[in-house]
Every structure is written in C-alpha cells, then in structure tokens.
Design a protein around this nucleic acid. Structure first.
Lengths: 329, 329
DNA sequence: CTGAAAGCGCTAACAC
DNA sequence: GTGTTAGCGCTTTCAG
C-alpha cells in the first residue's frame, strides 16, 4: 500500500507538503507553488495512492461514520437507505450495528468502540430503549431515537393523526358503520387511537376488533357486516381481503377497506389498497440531517410534525369501480 | 476519552501490560500475575475505558469491517441482514457503501479508502459490474459478486432450475396449457428459460407473454384461457391476480397461478401465492462466509449450487380449496 | 512557500 | 513476569 511518505520520496518533497496538497488545503492555509502541487498530484496518481481513511480518522479523532443500531427487519430498508443517502451527501458513511438479543447496551458499546460520530436507533422497541444504562449518556455520543437526550418525544411522524385521515375519509364518504382491526404493535395501537378519536368526534359507535393468536377476528368482522373497515396496518388489511375473497365477498362492493403503511404489498392486493403513506424514507433523511446537525452543533433541529398522506386506491372506490372494470374489458 | 496510558498510570503498570491484559492475550504469549490482571481490569472498568477500534485497526492494518456495495433497494434487506448476521459471528461489522449513478469504480475506491477487508456487491447489474477498471484488481481486495476474480459464475442460486420446479409441478398436476409471463429483469429472463426448458422437455406448446410498458399483457393472458400460469416474479403474479379479480375470475378455480421469489407480498395476495422461495438470507450468509474465507485464505469456497424450494399455497390448490373455504366458514 | 518534529492510541518485538 | 522502544499513516503547529 503506497503511503504519503512514498509520494514525498518520489516527488522529492516533504510529507507535510504532500499532506497539504492531497487534503486540498494547499490554496488556503499554506501556499504551495503550482508546479509542486502538480507534481505531487501526478506522483500520487502514478503510484496509485489510496488515502487511508482509517489513519485520518484516527489522528483527527473523528471517523466520518454514523452508526445504525437495529435488528434490520425487512420493512426498514427505506429507513436505512434514507440514512445512507443523506449521510453520503454530508461525507459520512454508515456502519451497521446489529442489535442482538435486545442488548442495547452492547450495541451502544460497539458504536462507541468504533468511534462513530453519531448513532441512530431504528425500529427499536420502547421496552428495549428503556434499558440503556444511565452512564451511557456520559459518553455524550449524539443519538437519535432515544428519549433521554431529546426532551419530549422524538417522533416526527404522528401515527394518530395520520390514521385519522383514513377514518375521516370514510366519514366524509357517508359511512357510519366503520370497523377497526388492530393488533398489539406499538404503532398500530396509536393508529387505533386515531380511529377512536375520529369516531368519538362524530358520535359514531366504535367497533374494535383485535387480531389475536387464538381467534380469527376477520371472521367476526365479516359477520358483523360493516360498511367500511380501517385496519391498523397493511398486513391486517391484506388478510381481511383474503378472508373476504374466501367468503366470495368483494371489496369495495360489499364493504370498503383501508390499510396503513403504504407498504409494497398494498399495491399488489386485489384490489389495491387505500392506505396511509408512512414516509419512512423521508423521515430517515430528516432524521439523518438532524443527527448530523446534532453532531455539529450539539443541538437538535426543531421537530416538525409530519402527517401521512392518504393514498386512495380501488379498495375504497365504491362508485367508480364498476365503470372501471367494464371499460377495462 | 480514557486511553490505555491513563489505565497504566492509574494502575502503576506499563502500557504494554495493559495492552496484554485487555486484549485477552495475557494467558498466552505473556504470563502476567493474576493480581496485576485483576488490577488492570478493575482500573479500566473504573475509568470507563472504551477500546478504540480505529486505532487498533490502524496499527494492525485491518479494520475488521466488510463493505457492502449496493443501491439498497427494498427487497434486498434480507441480503444485508444475512451478511450482517454472519459477519457479526466472525467479529466483523458492515459498512454500507452506496452505489451512486452506477459509478462502481467510485464505490470500490470508497471501499479501498475505508480499508475494509473485503467487499460484497449485492444486486448490482451485470452492465455496471462490467465497468470495473482492470487495475482495481491490482488492489487484491477480496470481492464477492464480481466475475473476474472468481473464474466462472459466482451464482449459487440457480434461477432456471428453480423456476423449473414450479412448471414441473404444473405438469405433474396434469395441466397442459401452461402460460408464462415475464419481463426484462435479468433474473426473470432466466426463470423464463426454466419454463421453456420444461415445456420443451414435455413436448408442450409454449405460451410466452412479456409485460411491457405499452400493452397490458395480463388481458391477453386471461383472454387466452390458460389452465395454469407461471409468472417470472411474485409482482407479476400479484398483478395477474388483480386482473383476474377485475374480470370476476377466481384463482385457483378458473386457472392456477404461481409466482417466484416468496416475497412478503406473496403471502398477502388473495389467494396466497404458490411461489418459489429464493433464499436471499441464506445466500447472504453463505456469501459472507465465503467472503471471510476468501479474506483469510485467498481462496473461494467451492460453489455449491442451490435450488429454490417450491412453496405451495392456495393459488394452485384447485382440489381442496372448496373444502377449505367451507370448513373455514 | 516548505520542512522538521511531535503526537494521535495501540501493538509487538525484544530486553530486563 | 514486566517494561522499553519503535513504529503504523497522517495531521498540524511552528521554525526556517
């Protein structure tokens, strides 16, 4: 591996000069003659010099690396990518730090050892986040996704209000008998609250169905003959559509269905699902920007609240679906 | 940040001793009295010492980091996770190196600069992989996913033979009029070849439909009244199911459908899709193991061929679906 | 404008 | 058993 020393020797200059030229600071702090600059650059090129970021990071005490702590479930790829893209724009790269056996302290220790400049926890459950040792905060490592360092909640995306969008849509369309299917998911429960809130506001009766291991709540929903069903996730919505199909019921004709998440699969159900977009990617970009700001200034960016976008697809298009089908044929 | 020097001072021993104790080599190369070991450990703990992996990597010339070059599309998360999990088992961690604007050489340069010990390219198109500068190979950086360094193909997973599994299944079930829907995807084309191969073998007429921007091939498929349809991807299969639903056709009753990939969405279509599992995660684990082997020995592990597993779900269960529906109600 | 010198935190021969 | 010493590749004062 060719080093700056080699270049210095080959070009007959000192290592300092090479360092100045190659770090691009030649035209600022130090003035170096254009010939020398040229020669150094050429020699570096000729010798096939490759800067050693490890050494640079070591001596400067900063790695230009951000850590991502997660269990990396499939659906979080957009978050990882959002962080990666934004980090790249600021000259950072990403290091994946797996969260194993919920041992958040071990993961944070790995981040510390690697001397990452900041860390983001993604998709880490509240229960796990709570277990962080108090003395971790002595390290002053900037972290996104931990409550302690950001007074109040870190959330940018408001699950409740976003869920309300879908339910309000049902109300506007004139539906009264609106059901809600949910499960124990941390966020799904918040979405259920959004449903309840809207129903109360409009003095409508709530119909809550929880998806549990033992019993098939989908059967019950169908038996209940709803006009519209709001599901706390696209997964739940897709399973409801499957159940409807088994019973020879059609959506949206028999009743309309909305999901939540705008997951890939919501475009591929029959019919495609109306859903609320949870902007993972954009949230990650914002989160990464915030993290970098936190690293640079020690301050968190002001938290803007984000509400999802309702994406209307055929699963709630009761009126036009017949036309559509006919013209399609 | 507390260093080994601080510990040495506090514990009244030399930095070397501290180094030996903390790197766990105390009981091998060097014999150090238990009291000293204990004292050093305690002092380290007391002072809150955190090893500097950067310094260690720098001095040893190895970073214990693997690079992943990719554009990180959503569906490749299982691959990333597979690499991450396996890397962790060998004491490595992962660095994400984004592939931007198809500039593979820049990405490889970033890997080189970061002094990762090896690199895996995931989901990088052939067209891009071909653009690697010849002199990159001078670096001798171990890479998985580039043809040049591994004579012959790197593929472990055989797309053709795996696709054949699904088509053979159709033949066995007695279907003769078997259609195939495909698109321009690198792998999808291989799966189409798998279909063709089986059809030829059984002297059956091939019915090929390509999904192109302008025209709706799904309409044509339906109009053709197939008995069974093999789709080159789960996406294509899901879209076919959507089209069937619009036409008030039912799967599997009117005709059966199989996809490819065992993507998340294949479990959530109505009905759930029969598909061929592409073992992303397992492939990644194997790939990572291979990469580490390559790093250690300079040799690639022998390439075992892997064939997918046919996952039979309701979309091809013509006979039993009625029973099932009835007992479910 | 250029170079000498010190040091970042850690490892590893080699003495003591 | 324990300490001395010399770097790893790079940055960065501070003299020349």
């Amino acid at each position: 591996m060719v080093t700056m020393k080699d270049i210095a020797a080959e070009a007959n200059v000192s290592r300092t000069t090479v360092s100045f030229v190659l770090s691009g600071r030649c035209e600022k702090d130090q003035k170096i003659s254009p010939q020398v600059v040229k020669k150094v650059r050429e020699t570096a090129e000729k010798l096939g010099y490759i800067p050693n970021d490890l050494a640079q990071g070591f001596v400067k005490g900063k790695s230009r690396v951000l850590g991502i702590i997660s269990t990396f479930p499939d659906y979080l790829m957009p978050l990882v990518k959002g962080y990666s893209d934004e980090a790249a724009r600021h000259g950072y790269s990403l290091r994946l730090i797996p969260l194993e056996k919920d041992d958040i302290n071990k993961a944070l220790m790995n981040a510390l050892r690697a001397r990452v400049e900041g860390v983001a926890l993604i998709g880490v459950k509240e229960r796990v986040r709570e277990k962080v040792d108090r003395d971790f905060f002595l390290s002053k490592l900037p972290v996104i996704g931990l409550m302690e360092q950001a007074k109040g909640r870190t959330v940018r995306f408001n699950q409740e209000k976003s869920a309300a969008l879908a339910v309000e849509h049902f109300v506007e369309e004139g539906y009264k008998k609106i059901f809600c299917i949910y499960d124990r998911g941390e966020y799904v429960l918040k979405r259920k609250d959004g449903y309840s809130h809207v129903m109360k506001k409009h003095h409508l009766k709530e119909f809550l169905f929880m998806d549990e291991a033992e019993e098939n709540c989908f059967e019950k929903v169908i038996a209940g003959k709803p006009e519209a069903v709001f599901c706390g996730s696209d997964y739940l919505a897709a399973r409801l559509l499957q159940e409807m199909s088994k019973h020879f019921l059609r959506c949206p004709e028999d009743f309309v269905v909305a999901g939540f998440g705008n997951l890939m699969l919501s475009r591929f159900t029959s019919p495609p699902l109306t859903t609320v977009e949870e902007p993972y990617y954009e949230d990650a970009v914002a989160g990464c920007r915030n993290l970098i700001h936190l690293i640079r200034t020690g301050e968190s960016l002001p938290k803007e609240e984000v509400i999802g976008k309702l994406i209307i697809r055929e699963s709630t298009q009761k009126n036009i679906v017949f036309n559509k089908t006919e013209t399609d044929i």
